[in-house]
């Protein structure tokens, strides 16, 4: 920094032999390490926080309580339509069968009945496992034909007592669950990610091939 100010920066390399009195090597290494550490911290700790925005569900829902009340597990509410397609999240009408009036179980139930059932307004649930529009996923093929358990892809949500925060990727607009909680993409459980590679891996193991593109793309 001791050089004359009017020497253009681009000529910096030209400052060769007589200016050997710059920072010593140790300082340079230290700076390198600091830079390295800072960016590692940013990339692993701060970046994931920045990448996802947090959204709350309209109100909380207790899967566990409901599971105890129904006979046929998940499919009691998450039904297949007559044409074989999967209906996904239950509609207001399904819930309203029981929750016509406030049963007084919880605050959330009160919100549900007063705001949605009373106004006949569908609940704008944020769906953790919503795939992109270009993806076709056949629940029938997996649940009915391959007799897979819901848990294999969706995890223990059926046992949960409250809904977790919905985290939306700010760039893609998709739920964090598609990529998986682990920012590095490391999967410990079968439900730790719902990307194409995850589907492909399972298909390859069980079907012998990842399958044709049209199997999942539309």
């Amino acid at each position: 920094m001791s050089t004359s100010n009017h020497e253009a920066d681009s000529l910096a390399p030209g400052e060769a032999p007589d200016r050997k009195q710059g920072a010593p090597g140790g300082v340079i290494v230290l700076f390198f390490i600091v830079g390295f550490a800072l960016s590692m911290a940013f990339g692993w700790l701060v970046f994931p926080k920045l990448l996802y925005s947090e959204k709350n569900q309209p109100f909380d829902f207790n899967h566990k309580i409901h599971m105890d009340l129904v006979d046929s597990g998940c499919e009691s509410c998450h039904v297949f339509r007559e044409d074989g397609t999967y209906a996904g999240v239950p509609t207001l009408a399904q819930c309203a069968d029981c929750h016509q009036d406030v049963q007084g179980e919880s605050k959330d139930e009160e919100v549900f009945v007063n705001e949605y059932v009373a106004n006949e307004k569908e609940v704008p649930w944020l769906i953790y496992s919503r795939q992109p529009d270009c993806v076709f996923f056949s629940h029938a093929a997996h649940v009915k034909m391959a007799e897979m358990e819901c848990k294999e892809c969706h995890g223990d949500i059926g046992e949960s007592e409250s809904l977790k925060v919905y985290r939306e990727n700010r760039i893609t607009g998709y739920s964090q669950d598609i990529w998986g909680e682990n920012i590095a993409g490391i999967r410990k459980n079968t439900w730790d990610g719902m990307k194409m590679t995850d589907c492909g891996k399972c298909h390859e193991e069980r079907m012998g091939s990842k399958g044709p593109c049209f199997q999942c793309h539309k």
């Binding site: 920072a23 800072l38 940013f42 990529w179």
Partner: peptide, 28 residues
């Protein structure tokens, strides 16, 4: 301790190298 632009260069290089070892560029 003398700090000159080489130190900052080193900082930048370190940061760049570090970033490559985080999910940031790949996820983006």
């Amino acid at each position: 301790m003398k700090i000159d632009r080489r130190s900052f260069l080193a900082l930048g290089l370190g940061a760049a190298a570090g970033t490559a070892f985080t999910p940031l560029p790949w996820k983006l």
